[in-house]
Design a protein around this nucleic acid. Structure first.
Lengths: 169, 169
DNA sequence: GACTTTATGTCAGCCTTGTTGACATTCCAA
DNA sequence: TTGGAATGTCAACAAGGCTGACATAAAGTC
């Protein structure tokens, strides 16, 4: 249906840009993302939570004291959607919400001890799979993996990604 | 919170397996997947469809004449969930369902002309982003990208992935 | 031929997680 | 000091997952 793209340049080094190669990348993303979320998902449903709770817990752990607004921008959902998730996490004692001192409109979010335990459980499961994959393919493949993913992000998401990356180094 | 993994081996070539490196991979997957689906999502919501419709359309296009059961196995959802999506696609004239000739219990699924037009629109948008990312990072990074993703899949998803890959070559 | 299994479709009802709209509180700047 | 902007909460709705139950038709088995 669609024409090959690489061939039009007359340069065989661009054969990795054919529609067929791109389609393989698309399907790889689809199938891999399922594996990527599978292990945490299992843990979460056992405890009555969903993927949205995982995301909130992950990024609160990464940036303790973050505001709701900042979390909204990272997660890319509406505040109402996030609020529902946060409410259950706070009710269940996994997240603590402290009114801002400088600006009392803001709520600063922290994991409680129980929250940190769940976070650790989830991220350990997810890291185990990632580690097995990384180990299997070697460091050079991992570099390529991260390069492609970063190039695929929207620019505002890349901003968040880089900021978090720097914070961890 | 979690100990570094790479350091325990005493081998500096395994530094790419530290928890920090793994966390970066995890966050890269999260942010990149959003970019990956962003363009088709925009097109779909304009037309009153969702990501589930895109997935069905994609794999019917990839394997014309596929059965409902096969699609279920690829998509990893329940038949009730898939059926809801297929019903609307059939009602809207994007997908055709033909009773099997050999086995009349089976329904074989095909895209109509209208379905192919939407499929092309969606996959063109998605490929454009993938192409830009691939071009930006070069062929070696792309190889690594696909290696990591394949290693991250569940084995049954990898089976589907490989089977589709072979069909396209 | 009777029975079982398989493939599919459908109904009802539930949950998570996205959405928009309305509203309260707080801050800040004119 | 007052009106707008920012932050967060509550209510209601929709998409799209899920389970369970059931119907139908065709295929396979004994």
């Amino acid at each position: 249906m669609m024409a090959e793209t690489g061939g039009t340049t007359g340069n065989e080094t661009l054969l990795f840009l054919t529609d067929d190669q791109l389609r393989k990348g698309i399907e790889a993303m689809f199938f891999a993302y399922r594996g990527f979320t599978a292990d945490p998902d299992r843990i979460l449903t056992d405890k009555g939570y969903g993927r949205a709770h995982h995301r909130a817990i992950h990024f609160i752990n990464r940036s303790p004291g973050t505001t709701v607004n900042n979390l909204l921008s990272i997660l890319g959902v509406t505040k109402q959607s996030l609020n529902r998730v946060l409410r259950t996490l706070i009710e269940d004692g996994l997240v603590e919400s402290r009114v801002g001192t400088r600006d009392k409109r803001e709520r600063h979010l922290f994991l409680t001890e129980a929250g940190e335990i769940l976070e650790s459980e989830l991220s350990t499961a997810q890291r185990n799979r990632m580690r097995a994959a990384f180990r299997q393919v070697g460091p050079e493949a991992v570099v390529g993996f991260r390069q492609v993913l970063e190039a695929m992000m929207d620019s505002d998401m890349r901003r968040h990604y880089v900021r978090l990356r720097e914070a961890g180094e």
